[in-house]
Design a protein around this nucleic acid. Structure first.
Lengths: 161, 161
DNA sequence: TATTGTTATACTCTATAACTATA
DNA sequence: TATAGTTATAGAGTATAACAATA
């Protein structure tokens, strides 16, 4: 079967069935946007890794939130989230208290340092997403995609509960 | 500042600025869809890791394709792609030949075993994406998202060349 | 001097299971 | 017996730099 010249350049390559497979685009765009975000967060305690940002912002915004709730939101198990929280504690970003209502559970609270970091991270994350996607998706279409994916995420949360 | 009862349940939590940040949805959906896909590919040589599938299908579909082209498509560096190709070779899925035109470059070819695997993987990947997203995004909206993200991906490729 | 691919390394994430303390 | 969180570990991906061979 002749397929033409050897594919030595990217523009000679088609993506096979991946061309119309949504999971491919989610996965490849995740790599690109996550790498770009990590670059912008270099030097901050939340750089690298997907869930530190989410954990920090939610602890800042929801004093007393539990580790298990964070884990569920991030589709992670408790042990992985626990390690992130260990790091946060070491860096003085949060404190952990045993819940008065349930001796097994913890309540997470942001520190002053953590709150200051959350404020910075909040603006960086929003700006990064905007800057990154503005280069490759027209704003009106971004709104459409966010709308669809937002509902997809919440639907997925319902299914997996 | 009173924010109501302690957030002990997921539905009491809002996502802060992430609620309207596209990168968050790309990142969280990537985790979920990738995990689901890995489960379906258990036992196959391409399970785990994001780029084995892409590499295998493209080598199958583009005989003679170069490692550096694969790396570029996947936004990965050559060393990471090289290690995936090492695995493929060990498993007898591909062969590598030095290019006749350029002694530095390699040409990659699928083996019979690799081609058989590619055929299986092709159908699994397509079906998995469909099954996964059909549960959380109406088909018509999936088409819209694919259309937008496809252009975003190709635009990103252009920018990064 | 630049490019293709390899090797080495250090870091991180992932998945799993076993464990404790409490309910 | 189930749940919240911890600890330990093995496997894999990621990022970076240095390297050899070729252009």
């Amino acid at each position: 079967m002749d397929r033409g010249p050897l594919p030595t350049r990217v523009d000679q390559v088609d993506l096979d069935v991946l061309e119309n497979t949504l999971s491919f685009y989610i996965r490849v765009l995740d790599v690109a946007v996550s790498r770009d975000l990590d670059e912008r967060l270099q030097g901050f305690e939340v750089a690298r890794g997907k869930w530190k940002i989410t954990a920090l912002l939610l602890i800042d915004n929801h004093p007393g939130i539990r580790p298990s709730v964070l884990a569920e939101i991030a589709f992670k198990d408790r042990s992985a989230m626990g390690r992130i929280l260990d790091q946060f504690e070491v860096h003085g970003l949060i404190t952990r208290r045993v819940s008065a209502e349930d001796g097994r559970a913890q309540e997470l609270y942001i520190t002053e340092k953590g709150s200051a970091l959350a404020a910075k991270v909040r603006s960086i994350v929003v700006q990064q997403s905007k800057d990154f996607f503005d280069r490759i998706i027209p704003p009106a279409e971004q709104d459409v995609v966010i709308d669809v994916l937002k509902r997809a995420y919440h639907r997925l949360r319902e299914i997996q509960e």
